[in-house]
Write a protein that binds this DNA or RNA. Structure first.
Lengths: 400, 400
DNA sequence: CCGGTTTGCTAAACCGGTTTTGTAACCAGC
DNA sequence: GCTGGTTACAAAACCGGTTTAGCAAACCGG
């Protein structure tokens, strides 16, 4: 005989119970100074006793603001969350959002449609990561009048966005290898989401490729088309690329990988093919995700400020949302090469690579230039047990 | 002289422009079969030309559903996203949510208050991870009539929740070490969020500790209180615990760490203190996060199905939200010990540990029992370059 | 004591949709 | 020719709040 459904109390219930108007209840919660102190507190007491909480959706509707920012990714979240790059980026996003009192809403394709997901999303603005500028949803979002900050998409000129110096970082990576005497390269690229499509020159990967090719070209080295292999941006993808290249008869002494995950896969595949890193083959990654300093050998890679990218994207977005800064801004963050243990001087003769392979396990000393190796920055490479760098291992220890 | 602010078109605008009622426009979008075909398409054309999209917040309000599930964490998201455990958990959550067409909304303390954040959150239900059952917000959520699934909190009996067999996993870890002859242990625990508080026996860490102590007690080994050290659940936390224990004069031959991150920190600190793993000291982690198979040596740890936990939590929540299953369910997932390279037989004499330390770098052969070591499962331990396990390294290769 | 301001609160409009109820037109059947 | 049932749409109520306009009483200086 009790009440059937203990319906959620509404503002009218509180008003009736307290003997005041809805307006007064609203005031009690939002601007108590507009009421007599004892009235306000009486209302709050009644509200508390009824278990009343203002309905957040109704509130959003009238205030025309959700205090939520959306993080848009063209891929499914279930694949995205396993990506360390995205984890670090989200960390930055979350940090800025929390400081500013905004909640986070992740937007990913709903039943395959990003547009549908965007239609459902209740956000004040969107940070889009990895979305190409030509993606149709970009126009949809802009048409909806929703503030948008694009990360890693060569943005339209009148559009706020965050980029990094992909080309410069890639150039530095290639020049580093050139300086070590390498002449035979393999580029391990991240394949575009739509299979069969070419690397779009405007995208992140296009810019990185441009950097590689530019540096190589400046030394008169032309990279044959078949030395650019693409695969998924994962460890498995990197392994697949390296194995395929090997089976195709390619014998690079240096690999330029467009992501750290791929570089790690290349590292592993190269070792399984009997090569030593960096004695027989050098590998450079891109991104400098956290685990890259823990691989064996520690990965030489192009660092980009991933967390800061997320943070800056949110701050830029909020400056638009809150109309502090009417003019959209473009931010460009720097990259820098971090030299660790996965790169070394090119083998003297090409033949060495093959020899090394046939020798399988047996390590022979003196295959490379110890003096040059010793000069390399160790950085934090011996900071964690995952790496064997540091005195006593790797090359200058007792076991070489 | 153009329109000042190109206001977002409302349903009334479309209705007027198309010469129909608001109802008809609503029908055109939601149940077109209730209109004459040509009327419906005419309305849609007009809507398209005006750039009209139904306002998601208004829609939520009338439909009394947000099609969004909340992920609640008592810590700040910016610390949470850097946690590989949480990344894997989120992956599972996202997978299930995407399949069911739900969006994801992360709820973390707003200006330090979880209650405030909950008040703002527009979700149909909540998955709470790492929230103690006695946390005041639990009652708030239940009072609000919001479906709630608690993960890793010894839940109230009438409350749906997901747990794992923490005690059983911990027991297996301890028994493994006991079977290897260890008698001197250190427990590296995860400190409670509120400093100074004791490990609550009902929490995850309490259950794990119970498992450790139970197994030890069954062999007549009593763990002194000072051999239980706590710190943050991070690599740094694990390092700190190990160093502090060493400085306090503890000389354990085996460490039971309550998280993999801590175990990795212990690994590193132990090595820096001059110990070899597993010859001088064995380490067991808990969770089996992805990188644990890539440490050096690969980490022996208690596996728990992290992704599945996230997935199951969402499915359980949705069964409550959509009232498919009126009776809340409790799910208990299994754990299992994964034996990799970080555990080995106890050193014959305690003295060996000290010797090993004083010898610093020089590796001496035969410090442990090769026969027993060879029996250990290698698993995927040689699957990635980060580990040097596999023929030719670690112990049975040429460099021991 | 009077006109004007301030205080404390309310009634009504509004946010932008969905859903229930209503009604006019058309058609079939007896 | 009237009843009863569809069909196609409209009017109005509603979701649960906020906000604007307004009103009565109290205050206040002259």
């Amino acid at each position: 005989m009790e009440e059937r459904t203990p319906r959620r109390p509404r503002i009218a219930d509180v008003a009736r119970e307290a003997g005041v108007s809805k307006t007064a209840v609203s005031f009690a919660f939002n601007s108590p100074d507009r009421l007599a102190p004892e009235t306000a507190s009486r209302i709050l007491v009644v509200a508390e006793s009824l278990g009343y909480r203002p309905h957040p959706v109704a509130r959003m509707l009238t205030q025309r603001s959700t205090h939520t920012i959306g993080v848009l990714t063209p891929q499914a979240l279930s694949v995205i969350f396993s990506n360390p790059f995205f984890g670090a980026f989200s960390e930055g996003v979350a940090l800025a959002a929390e400081q500013e009192g905004y909640a986070l809403h992740f937007i990913s394709p709903l039943h395959g449609s990003l547009a549908r997901a965007m239609g459902r999303a209740t956000v004040d603005g969107v940070v889009a990561i990895g979305l190409s500028a030509t993606h149709p949803e970009v126009e949809q979002i802009r048409a909806a009048g929703l503030p948008l900050v694009m990360v890693d998409s060569s943005a339209l000129p009148d559009q706020p966005g965050i980029e990094i110096d992909d080309a410069g970082g890639a150039r530095a990576a290639a020049e580093h290898l050139l300086g070590l005497g390498h002449t035979t390269f393999l580029v391990a690229g991240v394949e575009p989401p739509t299979p069969g499509a070419q690397l779009e020159p405007d995208g992140v990967m296009g810019r990185r490729l441009g950097g590689y090719l530019g540096a190589l070209g400046a030394r008169g080295i032309e990279l044959p088309a078949h030395a650019i292999c693409v695969g998924p941006a994962s460890i498995e993808g990197g392994m697949a690329v390296m194995r395929r290249a090997w089976e195709d008869g390619l014998r690079p002494t240096a690999v330029l990988a467009m992501s750290d995950a791929m570089a790690i896969g290349v590292l592993r595949a190269a070792r399984e093919l009997g090569m030593r890193v960096p004695e027989d083959i050098s590998v450079v990654g891109f991104d400098d995700i956290d685990i890259s300093q823990h691989t064996n050998p520690p990965l030489t890679t192009v660092h980009q400020p991933i967390r800061q990218k997320g943070e800056s994207a949110v701050r830029l977005l909020l400056s638009v949302i809150e109309r502090r800064d009417p003019r959209p801004e473009q931010l460009r963050l720097e990259t820098r090469l971090i030299i660790r243990g996965s790169t070394g001087p090119a083998p003297r003769r090409r033949q060495e690579v093959v020899e090394a392979r046939n020798q399988a396990i047996g390590r022979h000393a003196g295959a490379s230039h110890p003096s040059a190796r010793r000069k390399r920055t160790r950085g934090t490479s011996d900071a964690i047990p995952a790496t064997d760098a540091g005195p006593g291992r790797t090359s200058d220890g007792p076991d070489t």
